[in-house]
């Protein structure tokens, strides 16, 4: 049965797959860092006492979280050129889409993180003469971030898997590269297995890291 497979195709496809993988990784890292920064700002907005700010953040987060990612990807791909006046390409479109989409999820994580920091810590910051911004930046956010590190990483693992959805707009990521070479060499099954294996190895090792982190953070606390 296995004799029907020809895995030598993997070797010949490596340079192309490597390019796709690099894009998947770039997409993940950009969406993660951008998403965490924007998400944190939105979490602060959501927890602020200014009603309009809090509502705006809530509407954004709830909207993004209620729409399937693949639709957002398609939507941004169609809408961004209308705004900018010229096409920016599937790859760049996906970078913007994922950052905006993931920000909503990271924002919910950071909101929980901020709320996990004892209220007395904020009072202590204020009592020492710190401004709101200083209290958040120096006291609350570092603790919130540390408490939420495993959850943030878990979200990033999901994000990495979700990047494969950019096939919908034809961006050349890991999955797309595997698909294209698979078709070219007439060996699609082997290439899909190979791609799945790469996703699995990366996600599984990251998951193990999360588990280790969780126990470490439990000890520090």
């Amino acid at each position: 049965m296995l004799g029907a497979f020809d895995f030598s195709v993997i070797q010949s496809s490596l340079p192309f797959v490597w390019q796709g993988f690099q894009y998947s990784l770039k997409l993940t890292l950009v969406a993660m860092s951008g998403g965490i920064v924007i998400g944190t700002l939105m979490a602060l907005a959501r927890l602020s006492s200014i009603g309009a700010l809090s509502t705006a953040a809530a509407v954004y987060v709830n909207t993004m979280r209620s729409i399937p990612l693949v639709m957002v990807i398609l939507w941004f791909f169609l809408v961004i050129p209308l705004i900018t006046g010229k096409p920016i390409g599937a790859e760049n479109s996906a970078l913007i889409t994922f950052t905006a989409f993931e920000a909503a999820y990271y924002s919910e994580i950071m909101r929980a993180g901020i709320q996990s920091v004892a209220k007395g810590q904020v009072a202590a910051g204020y009592a020492l003469g710190m401004s709101y911004a200083q209290t958040m930046r120096l006291i609350v956010l570092p603790q919130a971030f540390r408490n939420m590190l495993p959850v943030l990483l878990t979200q990033t693992i999901i994000l990495f898997q979700d990047t494969s959805l950019v096939y919908a707009i034809g961006a050349k990521d890991l999955l797309k590269a595997a698909e294209v070479t698979g078709k070219n060499y007439g060996r699609p099954v082997e290439m899909y297995v190979f791609a799945a294996l790469i996703y699995f190895v990366i996600c599984f090792s990251l998951s193990s890291l999360v588990k280790r982190l969780q126990t470490r953070i439990a000890i520090i606390r």
Partner: peptide, 20 residues
């Protein structure tokens, strides 16, 4: 307020040292 508070020391029931 921050300036005024910086001149008034405060000690809390639960210490509120910064754990990080």
């Amino acid at each position: 307020l921050p300036k005024l508070r910086s001149r008034v020391g405060m000690v809390f029931q639960h210490f509120e040292l910064f754990p990080h």
